[in-house]
Design a protein around this nucleic acid. Structure first.
Length: 467
RNA sequence: GCUCCCUUCGUCUAUCGGAAAGGACGCCAGGUUUUCAACCUGGAAAGACGGGUUCGACUCCCGUAGGGAGCGCCA
């Protein structure tokens, strides 16, 4: 049997980072088993669903490289089929009409709460004759759930979870306006889409029991369940807006590489021995359901950044150049010219060692596109003391005579200068860095000087030398 | 309130009845260096608590505490 997995988000906002991981796990499992990965948009809540959220989901999944197979299924378009199943259940006697008003149900719940008993629909219309139906009330259709026995979910992650059927009430399948509820819709869609494995967050674990009752009522084959733990914020609390970036697209903006996200997310709640850094191909090869942990994991930015730094270091220079140029343009407030891209490309091997995200990479390269006189940050300013500035003043003439302007010739000249000044090389190099980049961190100064060219180098040095 | 789930270094995790409880991030120290970074070496750091079961428990069972999820004509 080939496996069919699915990712089924509701389009009520951006793609949550937990949702991204759920999608990743489904994707990995389908690839691992050579199966199919489907996407279904659960947009039955017309009130909260938006087109922009749908677009954001597509966009984020594509960015993460989690491509789905076949056509996207929109749940809202399947309402007639959901209704059809509800009618079939009615006909089969596994569902019934309930004429309770919302107010009546509210009252019932309050009484139950006051009495300290579980809040559940008491089944008052379960065996009542429809002829007793009050006029003017449009009924809902409820599942005639088994009242005795128990429902056990054989979960690949959580193990066997047994829930007494007494805990489960007769849930609404079809609302009074004829629209299907989520519970009905998921089951019907998963069945119709021939989903074999349902991998989703544990927040659906309790739902799984109710859904199983629908499968059983319809005599449908029950798919394999795997309920994965949730991701919490760094503080251990449920991930929410106040944690900042919770949408996948925010991570793209923050300069994370999709392969780093995949690696990090895969490692959150799943593991393969001591392996920390692995390719997506390896993840596909190794991924399996039983290896998924049962406890919630906290989102650790430091570890993500560390991984991202690793992937940046190993990324092709050309790719990084392309990713960084727009960010450089944002910093410079103008287009980056083709001639400026040349030194950027040249310095990329050194630049990328010093960045944990694309924004840091752009910041590190920004001296290449900044105009003179350079803005100098506080740390660099601290380096440029008066005596250091006069030192730079003396260095400039020494550099003017350098022929060839390549690393060896520049280095020879600077070393000779340092020696003549009875200074260590570092005493000269650090001020030069500060003057040329306005920062205290950069690639090697000789590389920077070569990239900048002789004229620009001398000009920037003179800018910082005493007048 | 009721039901279900979870609990190993600060964080992510390995362990699947017998190990000095391993790795990674972060942190600290050292090395290298032209600064920072990268890189290399070393270090501190964990089985929530209490009972069992067993010759022997991080591993199995029970309880307590803490955390999470669910209990809608939301998804």
């Amino acid at each position: 049997m080939t496996t069919v997995t699915r990712f089924a988000p509701s389009p009520t906002g951006f793609l949550h980072i937990g949702g991204a991981r759920t999608a990743l796990f489904n994707w990995l499992y389908s690839k691992h088993t050579g199966g199919t990965f489907l996407l279904r948009i659960e947009d039955t809540d017309a009130e909260r669903s938006t087109q922009s959220a749908v677009d954001a989901i597509f966009d984020s999944l594509q960015w993460l490289g989690l491509n789905w197979d076949g056509e996207v299924v929109f749940q809202s378009k399947r309402a007639p089929r959901h209704r059809e199943v509800a009618e079939a259940m009615l006909a089969a006697g596994t569902a019934y009409r309930c004429y309770c008003s919302p107010a009546e149900l509210e009252q019932m719940r309050e009484q139950q709460k006051a009495a300290g008993v579980p809040m559940r629909y008491d089944g008052r219309w379960r065996d009542r004759d429809p002829s007793e139906a009050p006029a003017g009330i449009k009924p809902v259709i409820r599942l005639k759930a088994p009242r005795a026995g128990e429902t056990v979910i054989r979960d690949q992650v959580q193990g066997d979870v047994t829930i007494s059927n007494e805990q489960l009430d007769d849930m609404v399948l079809l609302r009074s306006d004829g629209s299907p509820t989520y519970m009905l819709a998921v089951v019907v869609d998963d069945h119709d889409m021939a989903i074999t494995h349902i991998i989703r967050g544990v927040d659906h674990l309790n739902n799984a029991a109710r859904q199983m009752q629908i499968y059983q009522a319809m005599n449908w084959h029950v798919p394999v369940f795997a309920h994965i733990p949730l991701i919490h914020g760094p503080d251990g609390a449920k991930l929410s807006k106040r944690h900042g970036a919770v949408g996948a697209e925010a991570y793209r903006e923050m300069g994370y590489l999709p392969e780093a996200m995949r690696n990090y997310l895969a490692r959150l709640g799943w593991g393969h021995g001591d392996d920390e850094i692995f390719t997506t191909e390896q993840a596909v090869e190794w991924f399996d359901l039983p290896q998924i942990g049962r406890s919630a994991a906290r989102f650790d930015y430091d570890k993500l950044r560390s991984l991202n730094g690793h992937y940046i270091q190993n990324a092709a220079d050309e790719r990084l150049v392309a990713l960084v140029v727009p960010r450089l343009e944002a910093i410079a407030g103008r287009k980056v010219t083709d001639t400026e891209v040349v030194p950027l490309r040249q310095l990329m091997p050194e630049l990328k060692k010093r960045a944990k995200d694309l924004n840091e990479l752009a910041e590190g390269a920004s001296f290449l596109v900044r105009k003179r006189p350079l803005d100098v940050d506080a740390k660099a300013e601290a380096v440029l003391k008066p005596d250091v500035r006069s030192l730079l003043g003396r260095l400039t003439p020494a550099l003017e005579g350098v022929d060839g302007w390549q690393v060896p010739s520049i280095e020879a000249a600077v070393r000779a200068f340092a020696e003549a000044e009875a200074r260590k090389l570092g005493d000269v190099a650090q001020p030069v860095r500060a003057a040329l980049t306005g920062r205290t961190t950069s690639p090697g100064v000789f590389d920077v000087m070569t990239a900048l060219g002789k004229a620009e180098t001398l000009a920037r040095l003179r800018d910082q030398a005493p007048k």
